[in-house]
Computed example of a mutant assay.
Amino acid sequence: MFEYMGSRKAYWFYQVGGWSVYFLSDLANNLQFLTFNFDQFDQVIGSMVVNVAAGIAMTHIFRIIFKRYNWVKLPIAQLVLRCLGVVGLITFVLAAINIPIDSDFINTEKMNWAIRDISYIINYVKPVIIWVLVYVFYAYAAERRNADIERVKLEASMKETEAKVLRAQMNPHFVFNALNSIRALITEDPKKASSGITQLSNLLRSSLISNRRKTVSLKEELKTIEDYLSLEKIRYEDRLQTKFDIANDTLKIQVPPMMLQTLVENAIKHGVQKALRWGFVEIRTFIEDNHLAIIIRNTGTLGDNSNSKTSTGFGLENTKRRLHLIYGNQYKFNIFQEDKLTVKAEIWLPLEQHTIE
């Protein structure tokens, strides 16, 4: 009966224990009506064993039918009618078994047969109704729980699939920009171009790994940023100034892979690339109020990099969606114009779920 509550052992424990307790209590309540002597004690015990076995057998058959034909999926009206039919049938069988057996122990000579039969039916219908109600209740509870588990699994699978798609959508933009940087150096400075190929190899390796992982340590992500900026410095030389201010206690914290690379790429494309003389990218991290704070400042104007029709604007939207998939509403992501020449991006990520121990 209670397979939904736990193991098969629990089911049989409640079956045997429940029916035994009921018929023992029924025997105790009817001692005043019994006319047997101690020579018939074995018969009384045998009668109780028969009742326990009959109760277990018939309710177990009901459980088999209930599961095999998936009654839990039936409309309420149909389920109620079927359960009432089962209750009536089991009650009738128990009464039919006990009336002839009890005639040896209970004086029924002065009892009207109709009253006798009704009293037996009333006596046995109560435990049967309770059994059926409890079983149906737990069957419905288990069905709802299983449905909730399947729904959560499906949502998690959909979120993971969406996150992988979003990561895959960002990678082509990053590769395209990196290849452009190397191409510009092939004829001018082969040595620097060779160095750029090494940097690109590291970046591609990080990109491939990121597609198989939901998060990476901030240290790994910063290494990717350093490779990317080193590659861009080959192209921009002194026009690109970088600064890192990284708190040591943030390096092991987990972050979405390639997230910062997207923001830094945005800073280069809409900041340094358009600067008349030089531009800068500054990355700072620290922990505050149980959150990892990542601050990115760069040369540029917000009007240039907020256009959702550009590839970078699309990348920013993807970044927000990825953060939402991982952190729900527990993160903050703001990008705004700090002053006339500087754009500032702030990311606040909760620490509880994504810190490496």
Score class of each variant (00 low, 15 high):
81 L>G: 00
22 Y>L: 13
228 Y>F: 12
235 R>F: 12
40 Q>L: 14
316 L>R: 03
244 F>H: 09
332 K>H: 08
34 L>E: 03
248 N>A: 14
147 A>N: 08
330 Q>V: 03
154 L>W: 12
63 R>Q: 09
98 N>M: 11
79 L>V: 06
339 D>Q: 05
26 D>P: 00
73 K>D: 11
240 L>I: 01
104 D>F: 15
213 R>T: 07
259 M>F: 10
203 L>I: 00
356 I>G: 08
310 T>K: 03
146 N>E: 13
165 V>C: 10
117 D>N: 13
38 F>S: 06
113 W>M: 09
145 R>I: 14
296 I>Q: 01
81 L>A: 06
142 A>T: 00
347 I>R: 03
111 M>Y: 05
227 D>A: 03
302 L>I: 07
190 P>F: 02
64 I>A: 11
128 V>W: 01
29 N>H: 10
186 I>T: 08
91 T>H: 00
71 W>E: 00
297 R>L: 14
87 V>G: 06
139 A>N: 06
1 M>G: 10
280 F>T: 02
221 E>Y: 02
162 E>G: 09
174 F>G: 06
74 L>Y: 11
260 L>R: 00
146 N>P: 06
25 S>N: 09
101 I>W: 12
21 V>R: 01
144 R>C: 05
23 F>I: 04
38 F>R: 04
295 I>H: 09
288 E>N: 12
254 Q>L: 13
76 I>K: 08
19 W>C: 09
282 E>W: 07
16 V>W: 09
172 P>W: 01
320 K>S: 15
115 I>M: 13
288 E>R: 13
101 I>D: 07
331 Y>W: 02
165 V>N: 12
134 V>I: 12
344 K>M: 13
128 V>F: 04
144 R>F: 11
220 E>S: 15
259 M>I: 06
291 H>A: 15
37 N>R: 10
173 H>T: 10
154 L>P: 05
221 E>M: 02
21 V>H: 03
308 S>Q: 11
331 Y>S: 08
190 P>K: 04
68 R>T: 13
23 F>T: 06
